[in-house]
Simulated scan of single mutants.
Amino acid sequence: MVTEIPEDVPDDRGNIDPTDKVILIVEDDTNFAKALLKYTHQRGYKGVIIVRGDMAAPAALQYRPSAILLDIQLPVKDGWQVMDEIKTNPRTRHIPVHIMSSWK
């Protein structure tokens, strides 16, 4: 598990309308998270970036994303734990999750 918690990355969380489609990006590599946000915008979605695992499931409940991009190696709670938390909650288990990770 990653122990260093990066700084938050600016995203669209303050500019989301009820009709917007949202992608939740759970990624602690801030440069990659920014690239994913840019790609999300190019596809017509708003993006919310979460840099630590323990904040992912609450963000999924709050922002009700169309999909989640989930890294495995995260600080505080790893991606497998996040996936379990999301998929065992009836309010979030329907959300598609794309797992992505790289081993260093």
Rank of each mutant, 00 (worst) to 15 (best):
V2G: 05
T3P: 00
T3Q: 10
E4D: 10
E4M: 08
I5P: 06
I5C: 04
I5L: 06
P6S: 11
P6I: 04
P6C: 08
E7C: 05
E7G: 11
E7H: 08
D8N: 12
P10M: 06
P10L: 03
D11W: 02
D12W: 01
R13H: 12
R13A: 11
G14P: 00
N15K: 10
N15C: 08
I16A: 14
I16N: 09
I16V: 10
D17L: 15
D17F: 03
D17R: 12
D17K: 13
P18R: 09
T19N: 13
D20H: 05
D20Y: 04
K21R: 11
V22S: 09
V22K: 05
I23N: 05
I25Y: 00
V26I: 13
E27G: 04
E27N: 06
E27C: 06
D28Q: 14
D29E: 13
T30I: 08
N31R: 11
F32Q: 15
A33W: 00
A33D: 06
K34V: 11
L36M: 14
L36D: 04
L37F: 06
K38Y: 08
K38P: 00
Y39N: 14
H41M: 06
H41L: 04
H41C: 08
Q42H: 15
R43Y: 09
R43K: 15
R43A: 14
R43L: 14
K46G: 11
K46Q: 13
G47F: 01
G47E: 01
G47V: 02
G47T: 00
V48Q: 05
I49Q: 04
I49D: 08
I49G: 08
V51A: 06
V51M: 04
V51W: 00
R52Q: 13
G53V: 05
D54F: 02
A56E: 07
A57W: 07
A57Q: 13
P58N: 07
A59E: 06
A59F: 02
L61T: 11
L61M: 11
L61Q: 14
Y63C: 07
Y63V: 09
R64P: 01
R64H: 10
P65V: 09
S66M: 07
S66E: 15
S66Q: 15
S66W: 01
A67P: 01
A67M: 14
I68P: 01
I68L: 07
L69E: 05
L70I: 04
L70A: 04
L70S: 03
I72W: 07
L74D: 07
L74K: 05
L74G: 08
V76L: 12
V76Q: 10
V76I: 12
G79K: 04
G79H: 03
W80C: 09
V82Y: 01
V82D: 00
M83Q: 13
D84F: 05
D84H: 13
E85L: 01
E85A: 12
E85P: 02
I86Q: 02
N89S: 12
N89E: 07
N89W: 00
P90R: 07
R91T: 12
R91W: 08
R93G: 10
R93K: 14
R93N: 14
R93Q: 14
V97S: 06
V97G: 09
H98M: 10
H98A: 15
H98E: 15
I99H: 05
M100Q: 15
S101E: 08
S101L: 08
S101K: 09
S102M: 12
W103A: 14
W103C: 12
W103P: 01
W103H: 15
K104I: 13
K104C: 11
